[in-house]
Design a binder for these strands. Structure first.
Lengths: 165, 165
DNA sequence: GAAAGATAGTTGACAATCTCTACGATTGAG
DNA sequence: CTCAATCGTAGAGATTGTCAACTATCTTTC
C-alpha cells in the first residue's frame, strides 16, 4: 500500500472521542462513509414516497433502456432474477412501468416506463441532485470533474464491471 | 463473489447494450459502484474466514479504542445496540475480543481485543490493502492524495458525521 | 437515603432482503 | 420431434436490521 509518511493524526469521530485507527487509512472506508451518508439522506428525503431498495435504480435503468428484459435488468442492477420479479411487480402495481410480451420471443417481458413512472423518476432525480449538492458544493467545478474522472478510472480497473447499483 | 453469475456466464455482451441514462450523472452512483465492487472483492477474499457483516469494522474500532463500551461501539459503527450484542457475542466466542465489567460503572462492558484478535485484524487489514491496491494502482500517488482530500472535504460537509461503517 | 427516572446490556418477535432451487412455458438446435 | 437452454416465476431458508420489552445498574430529586 502507499502510506509513506508516519504523520500520526488523531482521527476522531466528531464530538465523541472515538478513534478510527487504521480504518482511516483506507479509501474504501472513506467511500463507504460518504456513500452511506448520501443514501441515508436520500432515503430520508424520499421517506414519504414508498421507496423500496432496488426500485429507483431499476426504474431508471428501464427508462434508459426501453424494452429491456427482466433478465438484462437483473444483470444491470446486480440483483437476482427473483428479486427483479418482485421489483417489477411493484413497479407495475404502482403503474410506474409495464410489462409487455416480446412479439419475437414470447418468453421475454419487455419493460417500459409509464408516464407516471417518468414523472416519479424526475422527482427522484431532482431529490437526488439536491441531496448531492449538499455535499458537493464543497468542491469547485474543476475538482468535481477531477473526482469524476478519478472514480471512473478506478472503476475501469475491473475488466467485467457489472453495474451493481 | 466477484463474478456474480449463477451458472456459466460468457464474457459476451452481457452489459454491452445497457445504458445508464441519467444515473451516470451522479457522483453518488459512482461512489456506490466502486464501493460495491470493493466490498464484494473483500468479501470474496475473506470468504474462508467466516466474516460477518459488522464484525471487521467493530473489531477494528475496539482495537483503536480499548475499553470502549458496547453502546459507544454501536454509535460508532452505526448499528443498533442489539446487533452489537450479537457481534460482540461472536467476537468473544471466537476469542477475538473480551468483555470486562467496568469497575466504575458495573452496567458497562469494557471491550478489549485479544492477541488472536489483533492477529486476525492484521490479516484482514492486509487483505483489505491488497483489495484496494487492485483498484488504486490506476492512480498516481498525487492523485490518490488528492482523492483522499476531496473525499474528506465532502465528508466534512456534515456537521455531525456519525461514522456509520 | 428512598423513589423515580435514565442508561447499558440483553432478548425475542418481527419485517425486509437476498440466495438458492425448482418449475412451467417457450425457444432453438440437431 | 426431441432435448437442452433461457425467461419469468414461486417458495423455502438464511441473514440482517428494527423495535419493544426487561434486568441491573446508576443518577437525580426530594
Amino acid at each position: 500500500m502507499k502510506r509513506g509518511g508516519s504523520k500520526r493524526e488523531e482521527v476522531e469521530a466528531a464530538d465523541s472521542g472515538i478513534k478510527l485507527g487504521r480504518l482511516d487509512e483506507f479509501i474504501g472506508f472513506r467511500l463507504r462513509r460518504i456513500q452511506n451518508q448520501l443514501s441515508r439522506d436520500f432515503a430520508a428525503a424520499t421517506a414519504d414516497r414508498n421507496m423500496r431498495s432496488g426500485l429507483f435504480s431499476s426504474l431508471s435503468i428501464v427508462a434508459a433502456n426501453p424494452g429491456i428484459s427482466q433478465n438484462e435488468l437483473s444483470k444491470a442492477v446486480g440483483l437476482d432474477k427473483s428479486i427483479t420479479v418482485q421489483i417489477v411487480d411493484e413497479l407495475e402495481k404502482r403503474e410506474l412501468a409495464v410489462r409487455e410480451r416480446s412479439p419475437t420471443d414470447r418468453r421475454r417481458h419487455a419493460l417500459f416506463v409509464t408516464e407516471a413512472g417518468q414523472t416519479y423518476l424526475d422527482e427522484l432525480f431532482a431529490i437526488l441532485a439536491e441531496t448531492e449538492d449538499a455535499v458537493l458544493h464543497q468542491l469547485t467545478r474543476a475538482e468535481l470533474a477531477l473526482l469524476r474522472e478519478l472514480l471512473d478510472r478506478m472503476y475501469l480497473a475491473y475488466d467485467e464491471p457489472g453495474i451493481s447499483l
